[in-house]
Design a protein around this nucleic acid. Sequence first.
DNA 1: CAGTATCCAAAGGGATACTG
DNA 2: CAGTATCCCTTTGGATACTG
Lengths: 116, 116
Amino acid sequence: MTCKDFEKDHKKEMRAIQDSMDVLNGKWKIAVISSICYYNKRRFSDILGDIDGISNKMLSKELKELELNKLIKRTVLDTQPVTVHYELTAHGKTLQTIINNLTDWGIKHRKVIIGK
Amino acid sequence: MTCKDFEKDHKKEMRAIQDSMDVLNGKWKIAVISSICYYNKRRFSDILGDIDGISNKMLSKELKELELNKLIKRTVLDTQPVTVHYELTAHGKTLQTIINNLTDWGIKHRKVIIGK
DNA sequence: CAGTATCCAAAGGGATACTG
DNA sequence: CAGTATCCCTTTGGATACTG
């Protein structure tokens, strides 16, 4: 295993990792991304239904943060009452690799912890 | 972009991702892993010095959790006073890919957010 | 429908002091 | 050296009710 130079590159690497973690943190963030990703476009109440246990307050908060981080795009349709849909941005879609890695590692990890 | 089936695979995938995130969460976890990784073997007080801002309470907590998750190995040496060193397990070393991905994505993300 | 606002309990985490 | 223990403030997030 090779690790990058702790003294020299460490600060930068650390900041980069922390940036990623900050974006992904929050109890429901990845669930929200997955929901929007699968359906391509998804409305507020639909996502609320997709994710088991999430409250409207939390969904609202997570969506705002994802939008601030330019991972999703929010579109208001001029209907009565208003309809809003969310979709992933191009940048949001680049998360796919990370999400897949996290999935694969999580499965392996569970096996290590539970044992065989 | 292809996304896995939301209805069918979603629960499993979600759990796997959450498992990974749980392991990596905590303000200092990745910093601790990086420190131990770079130096191969590292003592408590050394790690404390490596990571800017961490308290002994938090370091103690993070180390315990990492050990519970079998990512690091704790060895007590019979000296006076006691010496303890920490090293990554084989399982801990498999995190390298994820850490690299998080680093790369974090750098790209920063560029997207700051803009050009 | 798509959120906000409010209240409140639990968890996270910093500072400091202490122990074998 | 390698941690524990304590205090205490901040953040997180659930439940519920309300709004344009």
